[in-house]
């Protein structure tokens, strides 16, 4: 079981990467990847929120919504849980670790509209995964997000300094770079069969 758990994490992180093959969270991926520090902050905050959101939404769906006979209310419930969770996490961090808050503070409110968080929560229950698999999916997905956004921000700092045609400057060249990265990640397809 532990092997499956670890394999699922690696699968979510590398093979079926959130950004490069599932297209969740492109907005922060393009918006916050200009500097490595902010990319790291955003990535860590996303890992934190996705894992917490899964820990809350999975039991909520299976023990409350299904029992009450209203499973179709899942999207509304999840988005409310995520929005309040983000607010809660922000308050807790602000109280207990001002230094961490300084580093992550700006990125926390942005996470509510990051599709990766809702996408993972929704995907877990849509696919009917068990609690453990949901957790490994959440961990894998969010770590994959962290990995790609940090790597991409390193590439982007180099891109800023390079001589790019005027019309490609900024977002277009970043998207084309992302396309090349995604092409490289296709090579990992089928590496893991769960």
């Amino acid at each position: 079981m532990i092997v499956t758990f670890i394999l699922a994490i690696i699968n979510g992180m590398l093979v079926d990467n959130v950004i490069l093959s599932r297209f969740y969270g492109i907005c922060p991926f393009l918006g916050v990847s200009k500097k490595t520090n902010s990319a790291l902050g955003m990535g860590v905050a996303v890992v934190f929120v996705i894992v917490l959101a899964t820990l809350i939404t999975w039991p909520l769906y299976h023990f409350v919504l299904v029992k009450a006979g209203i499973p179709y209310m899942d999207t509304i419930t999840y988005i409310l849980v995520i929005a309040s969770l983000v607010q809660f996490v922000e308050m807790v961090i602000k109280k207990y670790s001002p230094s961490l808050y300084k580093a992550l503070g700006v990125y926390l409110p942005l996470i509510t509209t990051n599709c990766a968080v809702l996408g993972v929560a929704q995907g877990n229950t849509d696919q009917g995964l068990t609690f453990l698999m949901s957790l490994s999916n959440a961990l894998g997905t969010s770590l994959g997000f962290l990995l790609i956004i940090v790597v991409f921000s390193c590439i982007r700092t180099r891109l800023e300094a390079s001589n790019v045609p005027k019309c490609l400057k900024g977002v277009p060249i970043a998207l084309i770079t992302a396309a090349l990265m995604s092409l490289a990640f296709i090579g990992l397809n089928g590496m893991i069969n769960i």
Binding site: C167, V171, P172, L175, I176, A179, L180, I186
Partner: peptide, 22 residues
């Protein structure tokens, strides 16, 4: 039709629009 194409096409379309604006 793979994810790569999505990034590539959006990037090229945006570059074309930027070219026209410039």
């Amino acid at each position: 039709t793979m994810p790569t194409g999505g990034f590539l096409v959006l990037g090229v379309v945006l570059a074309f629009l930027a070219y026209r604006t410039n």
